[in-house]
């Protein structure tokens, strides 16, 4: 059963990923991205990361992709891109070779260190073994309890800093995209 879930979600993830790269229309690419994000959310559920699965669907598929589509529509750049024109003739083959090399290297490292990770920890190797670990902390909401415990104790300072990051990002975007007043040197002030 877990195998079926893994295979189906992986097909979603990889199919969506390939779709983002090869779709000529940016809107179709954004919708392929949604497919990938849902596939990753399914994987999160399979790995008992329930909170992150929910956040993945709400924030990524809900907010970020909608933002992408909004900008695409707003700017009217949802035209079909001609992918046949390529200014640099060698770029695509080089990119393909580099991608293959990157994936090959990472997969080789993963396969190589598989046993090293195994001996380093006493826990189980698979999803089922970790269920016991989650349940010993307790209940169906164990994942959220553990996550919030970790987030608000060990990483509370980083959590506070993210608020600074978000405020800076919002302020910068508003400042950057607003229409400039008649006098460019006006500095602050409204529209």
């Amino acid at each position: 059963m877990t195998l079926v879930v893994f295979v189906l979600a992986s097909i979603m993830v990889l199919g969506g990923g390939v779709g983002v790269v090869i779709m000529r229309n940016p809107v179709h690419a954004a919708l392929s991205l949604v497919l990938t994000l849902f596939g990753v959310a399914v994987h999160f559920v399979a790995m008992e990361a329930h909170f992150l699965a929910a956040v993945q669907v709400i924030v990524y598929a809900g907010a970020i992709v909608v933002l992408f589509l909004f900008v695409l529509m707003l700017l009217g750049v949802d035209k079909v891109e001609n992918l046949r024109i390529e200014p640099l003739a060698v770029q695509r083959p080089l990119a393909a070779v580099m991608g293959m090399a990157l994936v090959g290297l990472i997969v080789a490292a993963v396969i190589d260190t598989r046993d090293a990770v195994l001996t380093g920890v006493g826990g189980g190797i698979d999803v089922a073994a970790n269920t016991a670990l989650a349940e010993e902390v307790g209940g169906h909401d164990a994942n959220i309890r553990q996550l919030s415990d970790n987030l608000f104790s060990q990483y509370v300072f980083a959590f506070e800093l993210t608020s600074v990051l978000l405020v800076v990002a919002v302020a910068a975007t508003v400042l950057m995209t607003r229409k400039l007043p008649d006098r460019p040197d006006d500095g602050g002030g409204g529209e």
Partner: peptide
């Protein structure tokens, strides 16, 4: 790793 590779190739070719 495969998904990362797809994304990297996309950044390079699009």
């Amino acid at each position: 790793a495969v998904l990362f590779g797809i994304g990297a190739v996309g950044v390079l070719v699009r």
